[in-house]
Simulated assay, not measured.
Amino acid sequence: MIRTLLARAGLVATAAGLATLLSAAPAAAHGADAPDGTDYRTRATGVTPARPGLEVRVVEAGARLELTNHTGRPIEVIGYSGEPYLRVGPDGVYENSRSPATYLNRTIAGDTALPTDADPAAPPSWRRIADGSTARWHDQRALWQETAPPDAVRAAPDREHRVRDWTVPLRDGADPARIDGTLDWLPPPDAYTWWAVTIVGLLAVGALGLLAAASPAGSRALSALGALLIVGGAIAVVYPVGREVDAGARGVGGVLIGLLSGQVWSLLTGLGAIAAGCYALARRPGADFVVALGGACLALLAGTGNAAVFARSIAPVPWPPEAARVMVAALLITGAGATAAGILRLHATSRAAAAALTQPR
């Protein structure tokens, strides 16, 4: 029995680490290269002159622009050298394979090598890339691409700064138009404060594992851990849903497709934590191990994977960044705290079992 308990404690770290490795590729694939947070706020202020039925917005925490065309006629997005880049119309979305922007905009860094036939002066070669009337793309005109922040930011990092006003040219038939927007730098939050609060919170939750597992207080502690895991699991489900909405997903179907293609491990982690919490509330056999494993996965996959918001002013979710930080802190507190508490309870159980074996009969 003692060996079984110790083996279960060791499996907590092993299983959680394996889950982290397995989830690395799907997480990186979400939104191509969607940021986990940024200090640059990109806003689209509208289309000039106004075009009824033509909508533009910023998605993925500013990493992409989204253009939706309900005008009934094709609208072209103009590339960096004045060439046609995208065409969005009633018959779908097309990209010009001769436009350098087609390749540069595939990553947020704009570091894709150009093929030999990429020539902005050549006649367009249109290639259909999507159905519908919505296009999303990285645009270097709306982003800050330098490694170092602007000079004004370095001079006064505690203040908000307008980096620039930007425009993206459009063409409606023979008529020119443009997308207008702004790029601002926002001072980041104090990450140390958020980490300090998180560590104190997870230690408080972990302390529940010090209560004797066989006592009434220990039973109540197990129930409390179960309830916390359910709350943490619910947050772990809501957060990736928010990321998909911020990435431009529309409707329940769009959110589900995004979750299954790019956020499936975060979703499964949340559902698993909820199941582990229910298992603990029912006080089923082996609940301590289930709590520890569920908490470890929650902290590693849902908590640390989104912890960049502690040090970034813009979060990739449609709610305020302060709310995003509270949610991530709650994920880490419930996940890491439940892991510590579960391991402590397993250790206490193994010691009690060892003591029982040494007592004279």
Rank of each mutant, 00 (worst) to 15 (best):
A292W: 12
D246H: 02
G254T: 09
P320Y: 04
A330M: 12
A122D: 07
R220E: 04
D246L: 07
A24Y: 04
L114Y: 14
Q263G: 11
P124M: 02
P90Q: 06
S350Y: 03
L267F: 06
G82A: 15
Q145V: 09
A34N: 08
P90V: 11
A315Q: 00
A212Y: 02
P84F: 08
G253V: 11
P26Q: 03
A130R: 12
A353R: 10
G209R: 02
A323V: 15
A275I: 11
A32K: 09
R98G: 10
A156S: 13
E244D: 07
V88D: 01
N96I: 15
G37E: 01
R128T: 07
N96K: 14
L22K: 01
D190T: 05
R162L: 14
L298E: 01
E66Y: 03
G335Q: 01
C297H: 00
P115E: 04
T358I: 01
P189D: 09
D158N: 14
A307W: 00
G31V: 03
V231M: 08
A15F: 04
A247H: 13
L300V: 15
A32T: 14
L170Q: 04
A213C: 07
V241D: 01
S215W: 06
G342H: 14
L260S: 11
L267D: 02
D180S: 09
G272M: 13
D158C: 10
V93Y: 06
R154H: 12
R250Y: 14
P316G: 05
D151E: 13
G342D: 08
P189L: 06
V291D: 00
G270N: 06
I235L: 13
P320Q: 02
A287M: 03
V93E: 03
A302G: 15
S99Q: 06
P35N: 08
Q359L: 11
T112Y: 00
A28H: 10
N306E: 13
A13T: 08
R64W: 00
W265N: 00
A212P: 09
L256I: 13
A196F: 08
S125L: 04
G173D: 12
T45A: 06
T20N: 00
A16G: 15
A311G: 12
D151P: 13
V153K: 03
G79C: 08
M327C: 10
A50F: 12
T134P: 11
S23C: 10
S215F: 06
G253N: 11
D119G: 03
L301I: 14
P240F: 03
G201E: 08
G17C: 08
A273F: 10
D288T: 06
P187L: 07
L293V: 12
G92I: 06
P157W: 07
P120M: 09
W137R: 05
I2D: 02
D119V: 11
P169T: 06
H161K: 12
S23E: 05
E244I: 00
P35L: 04
N96E: 09
V93D: 02
A338T: 04
A15Y: 00
V88C: 01
A15R: 03
A247S: 12
L211H: 14
P115D: 02
T269K: 01
G72I: 11
A348N: 13
A296N: 05
